[in-house]
Design a protein around this nucleic acid. Structure first.
Length: 287
DNA sequence: AAGAGGCCCTGATAGC
DNA sequence: TGCTATCAGGGCCTCT
């Protein structure tokens, strides 16, 4: 599900709810996420106060009162749900991403606070929790990741230099978190469309002008997506009023067979597999 | 070193 | 109705 904008929406709603709140209890129902949850996980978190909720790339970072951090990645299908203790099962009106109703299955972790709890649900279990002991280890943890699109370091010179001698296609690099972190399959497609660049174009063929467009449109697309509350695709029935709206702005993603939205272009959106991910692009205006 | 490909896992949907 | 195949918003690993 989540790329940078969706994770940011979760962060914002989580921040409002759990900042300065104390963890009363943690229940782990299934340790077998992408990374195995250690046996001392619950005890470690108990009585900790969440001092801050931050985000880097697609990772949520909860700062704890003992100066350590709880890292959370949502993988492909992770969602966070809020349940008030007095309610039985259902949440009605939260701004949590895609959480109109609490699913019946795959509620792997519960973090319980005084009057409410948050539940981590993840059918595919590609997500994970990780405890990071201190700030320098946290820094180290993200060492291998490239800058976020909003980072000053992510400018056309960085892009141009990175692409020198690289024979892979541009689409794969937008998904490469070591080059740039936070972009996923949906937004990679949308960024290339706005840039009028064919996803199969080789990185070393990119002109300075192309690199500038990549930089500008990466920032633009992700910021707009955050402002629209992220994208909610699939499972449309259960989306609450506070779910994302950016899917209405998709120009290419899942629009294969439809007309290009650019006036007078006349192109058709095509679908093609690149590095095993579905890729959508206009066959005329993306060169 | 860079790039191609496979794997982790469940659920929804399409096609027969 | 029920089967099988394919695909899904991510990230990491291995092999060449």
């Amino acid at each position: 599900m989540p790329e940078l904008p969706e994770v940011e929406i979760v962060r914002q709603s989580l921040d409002k709810k759990i900042k300065q709140k104390k963890v009363i209890k943690v229940i782990v129902r299934n340790r077998n996420l992408r990374l195995k949850i250690p046996t001392n996980f619950s005890n470690f978190l108990k009585n900790q106060i969440i001092t801050n909720v931050k985000r880097f790339s697609k990772y949520l970072i909860l700062s704890l009162s003992n100066n350590s951090y709880l890292l959370l990645h949502l993988g492909m299908s992770g969602t966070i749900h809020l349940v008030n203790n007095k309610q039985k099962n259902f949440i009605t009106n939260t701004s949590f991403y895609n959480s109109a109703k609490l699913p019946k299955k795959h509620n792997h972790v519960e973090i319980i606070f005084k009057n409410f709890k948050i539940i981590y649900n993840d059918p595919r279990r590609f997500g994970f929790f990780e405890i990071i002991k201190n700030t320098s280890l946290l820094k180290k943890r993200f060492n291998h990741l490239g800058p976020e699109p909003f980072d000053k370091k992510f400018d056309y010179k960085y892009v141009y230099l990175f692409f020198r001698g690289k024979k892979k296609d541009i689409k794969s690099f937008l998904l490469d978190q070591y080059f740039i972190s936070g972009i996923g399959n949906i937004y990679a497609n949308e960024i290339l469309y706005l840039s009028k660049i064919n996803p199969l174009k080789k990185a070393n063929k990119m002109k300075e002008k192309d690199c500038k467009k990549i930089v500008t449109n990466s920032k633009k697309v992700l910021l707009q997506a955050i402002m629209k509350g992220g994208s909610s695709i699939r499972d449309f029935k259960n989306i609450s009023g506070t779910s994302g709206n950016y899917q209405k702005n998709f120009n290419v993603y899942q629009r294969n067979g439809l007309k290009c939205k650019r006036l007078r272009c006349g192109g058709i959106i095509k679908k093609k597999n690149i590095s095993n991910r579905s890729t959508f692009f206009c066959n005329i205006c993306q060169k």
